[in-house]
Computed example of a mutant assay.
Amino acid sequence: MAITGDPERRGPEGLGTRLRHVLEILDGDVARFLADIGLDDYRPRYSPVVRALLARGPLPIRDLAAEIGVTHSAASQTVAQMNRAGLVALEPGADARQRIVSLSEKTRDLLPLIEAEWTATTEATEALEAELPYSLRALLDAIMEALARKPFRDRIGETVAARELR
């Protein structure tokens, strides 16, 4: 999927729309590459989970969510997809509400291929960033830091337009 049209005349898309579009392009291309190398059931969103479980071992979903920086709901949805694909195993935790996530044998068998894809994706990311006027990763880090200092909701609320709504 290509970005079309003159950047100055693309329309009123906001920051969120553009960020989602870039993410769709990146994830779509990574997913197609994964299929090219025989990892049809593996999605780009699984990599942070696999990396966290490799580094920390089996984890409750709540801890996994914190480790990869997503909501409990997002982690739970990803884990459910991975479980259906046979990529993780779920065990009951200390209480009935807790589930412990671990890598399956299927994923462990696929690790050499998954890790090779990670290396290729990292190299492609570095090549893309070399074409940009600044580091996309550094920019995204700076955005997250700025939003941690002052949430976007607060920034919206401080605008003249928002004050006129009250």
Rank of each mutant, 00 (worst) to 15 (best):
P12K: 02
I114P: 01
F152S: 09
E91C: 03
L34Q: 00
L128S: 05
R155P: 05
I61Y: 10
T17E: 14
A89I: 09
S135L: 06
P92F: 05
R137C: 03
A52S: 15
L39H: 06
R43D: 04
G69L: 03
L140C: 13
T107F: 03
P112W: 06
Y134I: 05
V160L: 08
R153W: 02
G28H: 01
I100K: 12
A96E: 14
M144V: 07
D141N: 13
L34R: 00
G86H: 10
R166F: 10
T78G: 01
D63N: 14
P44R: 01
D63S: 14
R18K: 14
E24Q: 03
L53D: 13
Y134K: 12
L19E: 04
D29I: 00
V49C: 05
P58Y: 06
E67S: 15
P133H: 07
G57E: 11
T125F: 07
G5V: 09
M144W: 04
T159V: 06
V49T: 13
L128E: 06
P151M: 07
A146N: 09
S47Q: 02
P58S: 15
T125I: 05
V79Y: 13
D154G: 03
S102Y: 07
V70Y: 10
R97A: 13
P7Q: 08
G14S: 09
E129T: 05
L39S: 06
P44K: 01
I25T: 06
E131L: 10
I37N: 04
T4P: 00
I143E: 13
A116L: 05
A66N: 13
L87V: 10
G11I: 00
D40A: 08
E126M: 06
R84K: 15
S73L: 10
D41N: 03
I143F: 05
L19Q: 07
V79E: 11
P58E: 15
D36V: 02
E117M: 00
D141E: 15
L53N: 12
R137F: 05
V160H: 07
T4Q: 10
V160P: 02
I61L: 10
E129C: 07
V70E: 13
N83Y: 05
R166I: 13
E24N: 04
A127E: 09
L87F: 14
A96H: 09
D27V: 00
R62G: 12
L15F: 15
T122G: 01
E105F: 03
G57W: 08
L54P: 09
A89R: 14
I37H: 03
A138N: 12
A55N: 11
R149I: 03
V101T: 15
W118D: 02
V79D: 11
L23M: 10
V22P: 01
E8C: 06
A75R: 09
A148S: 12
R9Q: 14
G157Y: 05
R9K: 14
G57S: 11
V88C: 12
N83P: 02
R97W: 06
S104Q: 14
A116T: 06
G38A: 03
D36S: 12
H21Y: 03
S104C: 09
S76N: 15
L140E: 08
